[in-house]
Design a protein around this nucleic acid. Structure first.
Ligand SMILES: [Zn+2]
Ligand SMILES: [Zn+2]
Ligand SMILES: [Zn+2]
Ligand SMILES: [Zn+2]
Lengths: 163, 163
DNA sequence: GCGTTTCTGTTATGAGATAACATCACGGAC
DNA sequence: GTCCGTGATGTTATCTCATAACAGAAACGC
């Protein structure tokens, strides 16, 4: 994450057995939905899970090859689209980045809201009442709301204390 | 707006005396804030007000010259940044577009939420409880929220009926 | 096996945004 | 009025983000 501060940051992605298990569970869900968890899809999901933070598409492209070889953009963008369709990743529009879904047993594309630390990049996916409130406001105005983008920026507790 | 439907759409921008008055009021507010409403800033605001809908930055660039001459990108992006700082325009991150602020007596940059019709592009700026709810959720998670992006997509009443 | 569908690899291009720097207008100090 | 500092503009170039189009390979159903 491009920090706006000068203190250190901890990172909290998955690795080792926890990463393997998350990938296996993701594959199981994909298969049970009648689709395939192909190598590029698995690789992109792995990169997102390892990071634990929003990642820029071109960072995924750069890190794609295990040997340091970059991927071609469509490879990664197609995988991201697939992962979004299955609710395993989300796009953060306000920073043009992608993040692994924090939900565990979600079965498909779903609404999400995010708290994003502009300093360290720590991002929390919440499924609070935000969607309901905005959907209700939309209904009151005659809109049939199909999809929401809810992203709140600020400082996490750690970065606020460090500042 | 790039429609996802095949029926006709009405548009609701400002023109004539109403447009002139809105521009004059905007200039008054800028001046009272100790800044200047320069020609490019006025021109971009005028284009946004005339449209009444979110407009892509490169559409503003293309329409910038009264005689059909395009502007250079920094000209328009700088004006947009200025208008956002003064709460006269907003960026819609989910569609990478810009819209004139619907508020009247706002005195500077402010939070906003949007209802966006994916069919006709009609966009309504609302200042409902969405911000409060997400800010409260952020506070509960230890975040100091500084800025929110709240955008709801769907169909407006007219497009739903026409569909 | 064989046709159909889906996914992948690859090339090229379109769309969105900003860095850097020279030049120009404005406003205050003198 | 002239000088000068500040902020805005014009201009060039470049950077980031994302998709179109098409050929080839892999999986699937029969
Ligand atoms: Zn999620
Ligand atoms: Zn932080
Ligand atoms: Zn507004
Ligand atoms: Zn509509």
């Amino acid at each position: 994450m491009n920090a706006v501060c000068d203190h250190d940051h901890l990172h909290s992605g998955l690795d080792g057995a926890r990463l393997d298990r998350a990938l296996s569970e993701a594959e199981a869900r994909v298969v049970s939905a009648g689709e395939r968890m192909t190598p590029p899809r698995r690789r992109v999901l792995s990169l997102l899970l390892e990071s634990g933070e929003p990642v820029k598409a071109y960072d995924l492209i750069a890190r794609f090859g295990e040997d340091g070889q970059a991927a071609k953009p469509p490879t990664v963008y197609r995988a991201l689209e697939f992962l979004e369709r299955h609710g395993m990743a989300h796009r953060i529009a306000s920073i043009s980045a992608y993040v692994a879904c924090a939900g565990q047993e979600v079965g498909g594309s779903h609404a999400a809201a995010f708290l994003i630390c502009d300093c360290c990049g720590v991002t929390r996916e919440i499924d609070g009442p935000g969607q309901d409130v905005i959907a209700a406001a939309g209904a009151a105005a005659g809109y049939a709301i199909a999809r929401t983008t809810i992203e709140a920026h600020g400082l996490c507790a750690a970065c606020r204390d460090a500042a």
